Simulated scan of single mutants.
Amino acid sequence: MRKNLSHMILCLLLALSFVNVNAQEKEVAQIAAKVGAPAIQVVHIKKGKITAVNFGKKKADSSALITENTAFQAASLTKVIAAYTFFKLYDKGLIDLDKPLSEYFTYNRLVNEPQGRLITARMVLTHRTGFLNWEGAVGSAEWYNTPLHVQFVPGTKYKYSGEGFYYLQLAMEKVAGKPFREIVREEVFKPLKMEHSDMQWNEALFIDYAYGHYSADKPRKLAKWSYTNAAYTLYTTALDYSRFVQQALVEGKGLKKKTHLLMISKANEAQKSSGEVNDDDKHVPCALGMRMQINEKGTWLWHTGSNPGFRCFFIVNPATKESLVAFNNSDTGMPAFNELMHLFLEKDQTFWAYKWRNGELD
């Protein structure tokens, strides 16, 4: 029965079979106005039914409206793609979860940081490397040579870090013998049929795209990442990312069963602030590459993303297969995810994914 239901959901996704969403469109429009987002793109999947809403403008001073194929920056949702890619290589025996990454790759930014050589993939995926989120102006020419410093002994505490994911990217490139962008295309985008996604700007592919905004009526300059970073450079759509969530995270497509279970199970605690783990933290432990939400309706997986001008979010319950993916194009848009969970998901549950830190992870 479960396999049949899974197959039906996947077929519906690939066929782009959507339900009538007139009522939801009005409510999503109200949410967009409330949070100051020019556009919201959302896909909700429950019991074989797909609700897709694409509301608003690609750019505030333009009349062009977003569609289901409009590309958004996925920001830190990129990290979940990177985690799944890691486990594809892990299943091939190319890289280990607990062997120090320094045994695969010598990182020039850690030559004067001996403790950095202790860092493993597991520490990266649970944000226990000791790195800051970013050290230096990420993406700049100088950043690639900016020395890294660990803030504590790796593996002993929690501290959210994009630097760790870039280090893991370099190790994966080394063991696979190819650029990370190519690895992701082969291991993720092609097999999961994510035809509107790339790990950096793709002029030929992204004809339909959204601009980021400072606020509802103040567009930002269009950011076209010319490089790949496993922490934040993914461009995609809510529909494509829903394909990833349903196939990779719910079904474990392309992974050994044991590996899939390992990836989506509790791996460690998260911490809202320095010091001891508190009661709120216990509701949002770390899985490998994403967060969990443990509440009245069961155990969920989730992650948020914040790039300049974009806010992104997904949540999924692997047991029921219900998922929600949403993107918007404003710096003020993070509260939309709390509103969207209350709109699309069952009532009478605590949305720790937002409540924990108002949607922010870093």
Score class of each variant (00 low, 15 high):
Met8Trp: 11
Ile9Phe: 11
Leu14Cys: 11
Ser17Met: 11
Phe18Cys: 04
Val19Pro: 01
Ala23His: 08
Gln24Thr: 10
Lys26Trp: 06
Lys26Leu: 11
Val28Lys: 00
Ala29His: 12
Ala29Trp: 10
Val42Tyr: 03
Val42Asn: 07
Ile50Pro: 01
Val53Cys: 06
Gly56Gln: 09
Glu68Asp: 13
Asn69Ala: 10
Ala71Val: 11
Ile81Arg: 13
Tyr84Val: 14
Thr85Val: 10
Thr85Trp: 01
Lys88Phe: 00
Tyr90Ile: 00
Lys92Cys: 01
Gly93Glu: 01
Asp96Met: 09
Leu97His: 03
Lys99Trp: 04
Leu101Thr: 06
Tyr107Asn: 15
Asn108Asp: 15
Glu113Val: 11
Gln115Phe: 12
Gly116Asn: 08
Leu118Gln: 14
Thr120Leu: 03
Arg122Val: 00
Val124Asn: 03
Gly130Leu: 08
Gly130Tyr: 06
Asn133Lys: 12
Asn133Ala: 15
Trp134Ala: 05
Glu135Val: 05
Ala137Tyr: 06
Ala141His: 12
Ala141Ile: 06
Trp143Asn: 00
Trp143Arg: 01
Asn145Ile: 12
Leu148Phe: 15
Leu148Asp: 10
Phe152Asn: 12
Val153Phe: 13
Val153Gln: 15
Thr156Lys: 14
Gly162Pro: 10
Phe165Ile: 02
Gln169Phe: 05
Lys174Arg: 15
Pro179His: 03
Glu186Pro: 01
Glu187Ala: 15
Phe189Arg: 13
Lys193Ile: 11
Leu205Asp: 03
Ala210Ser: 13
Gly212Asn: 05
His213Arg: 04
Ser215Glu: 03
Ser215Cys: 01
Tyr227Trp: 02
Tyr227Glu: 01
Thr228Met: 00
Thr228Trp: 00
Ala231Arg: 01
Thr233Arg: 00
Tyr235Gln: 09
Thr237Cys: 01
Thr237Gly: 01
Ala238Ile: 01
Leu239Ala: 06
Arg243His: 15
Leu249Trp: 08
Leu255His: 05
Lys258Tyr: 08
Ile264Lys: 06
Ile264Trp: 07
Ile264Glu: 04
Ser265Trp: 01
Glu269Lys: 08
Ser274Phe: 13
Gly275Phe: 04
Asn278Gln: 09
Asn295Gln: 11
Gly298Lys: 12
Trp302Gln: 09
His303Arg: 05
Thr304Val: 04
Gly305Gln: 02
Ser306Leu: 10
Pro308Glu: 05
Arg311Glu: 10
Cys312Pro: 02
Val316Ala: 12
Asn317Phe: 08
Asn317Gly: 08
Ala319Ser: 15
Glu322Thr: 15
Asn338Arg: 13
Phe344Val: 02
Leu345Cys: 13
Lys347Phe: 06
Phe351Ala: 07
Phe351Gln: 12
Ala353Trp: 00
Tyr354Ala: 05
Tyr354Gly: 04
Leu361Ser: 14
